[in-house]
Design a protein around this nucleic acid. Sequence first.
DNA 1: ACAACGCATAGATGTTTGTCAATATTTATT
DNA 2: AATAAATATTGACAAACATCTATGCGTTGT
Lengths: 108, 108
Amino acid sequence: MEKYSTGVRLFKALADPGRLMIVDMLSCGELCACVILKKFDITQPTLSHHMKILCDCGLVKGRKEGKWIYYSLDKTVVDDFKAILTEITSAKVCCSRREEVCCEVICR
Amino acid sequence: MEKYSTGVRLFKALADPGRLMIVDMLSCGELCACVILKKFDITQPTLSHHMKILCDCGLVKGRKEGKWIYYSLDKTVVDDFKAILTEITSAKVCCSRREEVCCEVICR
DNA sequence: ACAACGCATAGATGTTTGTCAATATTTATT
DNA sequence: AATAAATATTGACAAACATCTATGCGTTGT
């Protein structure tokens, strides 16, 4: 089950409308946290919390410049994410070795 | 923010190791609920709960046959899901109309 | 008709999550 | 040095969630 831990962390990160919108905004490029904050009806600590979750899973990187932090998407991790979704949802090798025993379909 | 409701429901559906594994299993094709259950260390009601979540977001369909239910992935919704992830993470039209005003980067 | 089986639903419970107010930390400005 | 601004951290709290036990419902087979 640990096999899915990376995927779960990524899916969890986007399982929130606020974070989905943040990622949507960042897709256009780097943004300062203060700018993101203005687009929302949330407090600054809440935004900070969301950014931490997005950074912890690797999807977003923060670049500190003076007292500001500029956030941006990590395209590599985005691609990894897409690959995970594709991997999870597409047929794999095991499928060719299926055995049907009444209700007992085993995929090993 | 309602713009993201479909996406959030999909990401939430996969934000659980158990459900991720179920989808992984179903990627090989249709499976009876009882078979999925045997692969897990969860009770039958818990599985039923997970299947409901997966069905409610459209990712999985259930086909009833006698006393069994055969679950399978809905490839169309899977593709929609991939499209949403791509849409959310890739640059859009608004990006070309950016204005930089100090920390005030506005993406409209 | 009855018992057994597969699955769903209801209700209870502990855990996780999103949010906030208050406070700390770091950097820039005066 | 003092103040202000941007962000992070802490602690509290309510809502959402995953899980279980108990039970209900439909189907199959005796």
